[in-house]
Simulated scan of single mutants.
Amino acid sequence: MSDLSRTPLYDLHVELGAKMVPFAGYEMPVQYKLGVMKEHLHTRDKAGLFDVSHMGQVIVTGTDYAAAAAALETLIPVNIAGLGENRQRYGLFTTPEGGISDDLMLTNRGDHVFLVVNAACKEADIAHLKTLEPAVTVTPITDRALIALQGPASEEVLAALDPKAADMAFMDVATLTLDGAECWVSRSGYTGEDGYEISVPEAAAEALARKLLAHDAVEPIGLGARDSLRLEAGLCLYGHDIDTETTPAEAALSWAIQTVRRIGGAREGGFPGDETILAQLETGAGKTRVGLRPEGRAPMREGVPLFAAEEGGDPIGQITSGGFGPSVEGPVAMGYLPTELTAEGTTVFGELRGRRVPVTVTALPFVPARFKRKPAKVQQA
């Protein structure tokens, strides 16, 4: 693995007994001494600390926030201009054909937009963003680590370092002082649990990680449990559940494209692939990503073909993510099926070790999300 990059927390991972594997060009911990199953359950029960420093952090600056947002909306089909200050939103880069070239998180930081993009796509994403220059300035952040604290004890743990962490709700973003370091913190994550993602100066990353791990509720968590957690949460993994061959409607991500960017909206279209994407938002797509529960205990993993009948016929779809769900105590998967076969309770068949096993179409997520949301506004009489 000599040609792979290392995050600022590499030495800490090794010290903690992590099993290191190649991932997106980096040496990353796939599991620690607890093992994937216990790491997964610990995160659901208490709090887990994840190193996600391999992901890309980017600042986009214009003459003001509005200018940066307007430029980004030509590449990303979401309402960036209407995003409140210090609020975060999920977004997508789309292709001229209507596919998805990456998914990302974006934040209104008052005078700029802060983006977090996937590790495997970050070089291509940055090059894509630079096509907006000179209207905006695109600045990759290379001197900060990124860690995620996830699980029901996360608020207690982080608020012990900066009480303002407790005031944040899901998708809020704030600058907090954690163990003496200025950190950019969002109340978000990719596990379905309450938690935070923390951008910390590289020089302070190891000390902050050690401080968090010193709390009795916190354990280090590797890529293995990160994957099973996000799968139970029904969240897409780029390059597996979504890619340039899947559209937002097919991927069941229509919710990510706000009304203002749809047909008849104030800023309708104006992004790559808008003709295809907007048409599917209006009339539907031919295939759709769904949750799947295989019968029995054996997991069905990515690539397993799906059939309409127990015998005969060609595949009608395939699984894109699958494994054993520790929290649901059984196999879970996601995949694509013809839209007419995606009603909850529909039975299809997955081919496993030469035989076809029943698979039930199931609502997502498999485990309900436990985000700390803002209180609903009280309606006035």
Rank of each mutant, 00 (worst) to 15 (best):
M334L: 10
G323V: 00
T246K: 04
L104P: 02
V367Q: 10
D143V: 07
I319Q: 09
F23D: 10
A251I: 15
T191M: 15
A285M: 03
G345I: 14
D11C: 02
E193W: 10
A381E: 13
V30A: 04
P29D: 14
G354W: 03
N108E: 10
A174C: 06
K287H: 11
A343K: 13
I263T: 14
L16P: 06
A67V: 08
E197R: 13
G330S: 00
V260D: 07
D103E: 06
T246E: 01
E351Q: 05
V78W: 03
G195P: 03
R267Y: 02
E39Y: 15
V328L: 08
V290I: 11
L161N: 02
R373P: 00
Q318Y: 10
T244L: 11
E311C: 10
L41Q: 09
E202V: 04
G354D: 01
H42C: 07
A153P: 08
F371I: 03
P22Q: 14
D64G: 02
A159Q: 06
K287C: 09
T131F: 07
A47I: 12
A249G: 02
A251D: 09
A285L: 01
A124P: 01
A174M: 08
I316D: 13
T191S: 15
A279F: 12
G335N: 01
Q318S: 10
G222I: 05
V138D: 08
V60A: 01
Q88N: 03
V304R: 00
E310P: 11
Y32N: 04
F307C: 04
H240P: 02
V357P: 07
L235S: 15
G17D: 11
G91Y: 00
V58R: 15
G180N: 06
Q31C: 15
C236F: 07
A71I: 07
P22N: 07
P134F: 08
T63M: 11
M334A: 06
D314G: 02
